[in-house]
Simulated assay, not measured.
Amino acid sequence: MPFYLEIIICLSLIIGASFLFIGSYGLIRLPDIYMRLHSPTKASTLGITGVLVASMIFQSYEKGGFSVQELLITLFLLITAPIAANMIAKTALHHKIKPLKRTQNQDLIDSICEREEPKKADEKSV
């Protein structure tokens, strides 16, 4: 394997591992569910992307052609992580989990919890 590919793979792994460490530390350190949503979705997604890019480069060199599997896994994670975070946030709001006092924009959380469900199209308004 050429030395420049080893350097690129090592840098990608180091960057990915750094983001994964920061995401894991943030998940442990942040005290509130609303604050914790940022850490695993942003930092960990970037971390996994770095590791998968390194794997894609290595596998492409070993096979002699472009490796598509890692690219598909990366795209899947980049699409599903924000959706999962949105569902976690909606669940926390549905169960009326109160944020800590130092959480910013608490007035938005209160207004979201108090809003009514939209009326369905087949229901007649009285």
Score class of each variant (00 low, 15 high):
Pro2Glu: 05
Pro2Lys: 02
Phe3Ser: 03
Phe3Lys: 00
Tyr4Leu: 04
Tyr4Trp: 06
Leu5Val: 00
Glu6Thr: 08
Glu6Asp: 13
Ile8Pro: 07
Ile9Ala: 09
Ile9Gln: 07
Cys10Leu: 14
Leu11Ser: 09
Ser12Arg: 14
Ile14Thr: 10
Ile14Tyr: 13
Ile14Phe: 15
Ile15Glu: 10
Ala17Asp: 11
Leu20Gly: 11
Phe21Ile: 15
Ile22Gly: 10
Ser24Cys: 13
Ser24Asp: 09
Ile28Arg: 07
Leu30His: 11
Leu30Met: 13
Leu30Gly: 10
Pro31Gly: 06
Pro31Cys: 07
Tyr34Trp: 10
Met35Ser: 14
Arg36Thr: 12
Arg36Cys: 09
Arg36Asn: 12
Leu37Glu: 11
Ser39Cys: 12
Ser39Glu: 11
Pro40Asn: 12
Pro40Phe: 15
Thr41Lys: 11
Ser44Pro: 04
Gly47Tyr: 03
Gly47Arg: 00
Ile48Gln: 03
Gly50Tyr: 04
Gly50Ile: 01
Leu52Gly: 02
Val53Phe: 05
Ser55Arg: 03
Met56Gly: 05
Gln59Asn: 10
Gln59Ile: 13
Ser60Gln: 01
Tyr61Leu: 03
Glu62His: 11
Gly64Thr: 04
Gly65Val: 15
Phe66Thr: 01
Phe66Met: 04
Gln69Lys: 12
Gln69Ala: 15
Glu70His: 11
Glu70Cys: 14
Glu70Pro: 09
Leu71Arg: 00
Leu71Ala: 04
Leu71Tyr: 03
Leu72Arg: 07
Leu72Asp: 10
Ile73Met: 04
Thr74Ile: 08
Leu75Lys: 09
Leu78His: 11
Leu78Cys: 14
Thr80Met: 14
Pro82Gln: 06
Ile83Asn: 05
Ile83Val: 09
Ala84Arg: 05
Ala84His: 05
Ala85Phe: 00
Asn86Met: 05
Met87Ala: 05
Met87His: 02
Met87Lys: 03
Ile88Ala: 00
Ala89Trp: 00
Ala89His: 02
Ala92Pro: 01
Ala92Thr: 03
Leu93Ile: 07
Leu93Glu: 04
Pro99Ile: 09
Pro99Ser: 08
Leu100Ser: 11
Thr103Met: 13
Asn105Lys: 14
Asn105Glu: 14
Asp107Lys: 11
Asp107Val: 08
Ile109Lys: 00
Glu114Pro: 00
Glu114Trp: 05
Arg115Ser: 02
Glu116Asp: 06
Glu117Leu: 04
Lys119Asn: 14
Lys120Glu: 03
Ser125Pro: 09
